[in-house]
Amino acid sequence: MYTTITKQTTEGNYAQSVADFVAYLEKENESKSIDEMEHFFNQYGEEISSQEVIKEIDGNTAKLKKTEPKFYSITLNPSSRELKHIQDSSEALKQYTREVMKEYAKSFNREINGRAVTVDDIKYYAKIEHQRTFKGTDKQIVENQPYATKILQLKNDIRKIEAGEAKGNIERLKLKIAKLEKQAPHQQNGKRIVRGMPKAGSQSHIHIIVSRKDMSNKYSLSPGSKYKASETVFNGKPVKRGFDRDKFFKASEKTFDTLFQYERNYVETYTARKTFLKNPKLYFSMLSGLPTNEKATAYRILGKAGVPIMNIPTNKVQLALKVINKFKKGIDRAVQSGSIGI
């Protein structure tokens, strides 16, 4: 499970309305029938309209400045292995989201009227998406780009010939294009992978729009706080503050495992990812020390995610910076594409 929390910005400025983001999340419904559409939902409601989401989020920003985020985006990205475990069920993903948002509330070191923050204080709307498309920064697009450039040039040449602006053999140019299409290193279902192409396999994930202000529109609840858990003095009174992201990310993972009886492998854990980033030697030591069955599963998960398992270091001599960096690139790509839940 790969979970993110981000502020919504446009060209470096905080969005003053959630309308554009809502429109972006509605794009997947455009070509679907009413029965196939995924609607917004929250802790207690179903089939919530986009108009209601915009009205409620935009109307819940009392006393927030233009230089402050009005809302945050949380994404819950299950791995293909996790999705397979729950049979890619939308109902299971909704159930999971609602449990995760309880953990989100618990991660605030805040009090409202002398009590801890609960999910009933959180104004949020969530939506499930079942597709991901290839972006310009994806490895497949980057490595296919030289072929795409040549193909585009050949197509331009054909158009010039057809318009009488140049001379040449159109059929020969078409054969060259067909050859380049097949030579491109990254293919999907027999076609060259291009920007905007839907990714194959289970790609379901959840987008959550969460208001910066609580349900009463009085209290600011920022998951972007730089404080984990501390106290300060405001108007002469001690005030709790902070949001513990580590606690939330770990709880999100544990919630999935408990809810669906999922047996998580070490390489799928948030702890493993943090260990790799902070102490690669310890990560590889933990990986090589796993029981035989768990280690085999770990290597299989990493291999399916495109991580270069043949280069996993097994001793101190092999722990060269070059090897670690190559492994790190594989991990990063896997995480960003949702291939591995860490």
Rank of each mutant, 00 (worst) to 15 (best):
P78H: 14
T61K: 13
K102N: 08
V233L: 06
Q140T: 13
K218D: 02
N169K: 08
I5W: 09
K102P: 04
R245A: 10
K139R: 11
F327H: 15
F40I: 03
R192K: 12
K70Q: 08
K155P: 00
R159N: 07
D35I: 02
T292S: 14
T97Q: 09
K94A: 07
T275P: 06
Q336H: 05
I309N: 03
L152C: 04
N29Y: 04
T118E: 05
R300P: 08
K295W: 04
P223Y: 00
E294P: 01
L175G: 05
A15Q: 09
S89F: 13
K328R: 15
A272D: 06
T314N: 09
S73E: 15
N189P: 08
E38D: 06
N311D: 05
I193R: 07
I86E: 14
V18H: 05
G136K: 15
I86Y: 14
R212P: 01
E46Q: 03
D88T: 13
N265C: 12
E143K: 13
N279A: 09
K237G: 03
T149F: 08
I122A: 07
A126E: 11
E253C: 08
R300C: 01
E263D: 15
N169L: 03
A305C: 02
Q183M: 10
F108E: 00
E99K: 14
Y124T: 02
K106Q: 08
E111Y: 08
G341S: 13
I74D: 04
K179M: 11
I74Q: 10
T118D: 04
S288V: 06
T133P: 05
G330C: 10
A251I: 01
A148Q: 11
D332Q: 14
R110V: 00
I141M: 11
E52F: 10
Y2W: 05
Q51E: 10
Q318N: 14
G289M: 14
E268D: 12
Q187I: 07
T149Q: 10
G306N: 09
T292L: 04
Q318S: 13
Y219M: 12
G242A: 11
G201Q: 10
L64W: 05
S220L: 12
R264V: 05
Y262D: 12
R81T: 12
K32L: 15
K7I: 02
F243C: 12
L76T: 02
K155T: 08
K316P: 02
D58E: 04
A178L: 12
V53A: 09
H39G: 02
